[in-house]
Amino acid sequence: MMDITFTLTILAAALATYATRTAGYVLIKSMDTIPPRMEAALNAVPAAVLAALVAPSFVYGGIDVTITMIVALLIGLRAPSLVMLGCAWAFLVAFRHFVM
């Protein structure tokens, strides 16, 4: 049986998500041109989201995850994303098998 507080919390989160996405769309559509500062801020969003997703694992994920992320970064500087992902996965499996 669902708790009413839990259900209301999920509905409030869904409403807040919908409202922010809709407001952003309406704001952008109402402008004739996007100001340069806003465009720069919007261009920075993907990197900020990626950093927010990766940073906790890098700091708290353990030495194996931290070393694998460094290896993935180094490979990613020279290789395509799929190659980097495969190499990092293989490195992590080997590191856990032989070192840990």
Rank of each mutant, 00 (worst) to 15 (best):
R96D: 11
L53M: 08
M84G: 06
V54G: 03
I67T: 08
R21S: 15
H97F: 13
G24N: 05
L85D: 00
M69G: 09
M1P: 01
L50R: 04
M100G: 13
M1N: 04
I4V: 09
G76T: 07
I70W: 14
L74N: 08
A79H: 00
A90W: 03
M2I: 10
G24M: 02
P36K: 05
L50W: 01
L73G: 07
T22P: 00
M38K: 02
I34M: 02
V59L: 10
A44K: 06
P36G: 01
I4M: 11
V54W: 03
S81C: 02
I4A: 12
R96N: 12
L92F: 09
I34Y: 04
P46Y: 05
R21I: 05
V26Q: 15
L50M: 09
A14I: 05
V59G: 06
L85E: 00
R21K: 12
E39D: 01
V45M: 09
I63Q: 02
V71E: 01
I67K: 01
M38R: 04
G76F: 02
M69F: 07
A44H: 00
L8S: 11
A16P: 02
V93N: 08
A14R: 02
A12K: 10
M84S: 09
V26P: 14
L77M: 12
F6Q: 09
K29R: 13
S30G: 06
A47D: 05
K29W: 00
L82Q: 06
I63K: 02
I63W: 00
L73A: 09
L74Y: 07
S81N: 13
N43H: 06
G24Q: 08
M31F: 11
T68C: 10
S57Q: 12
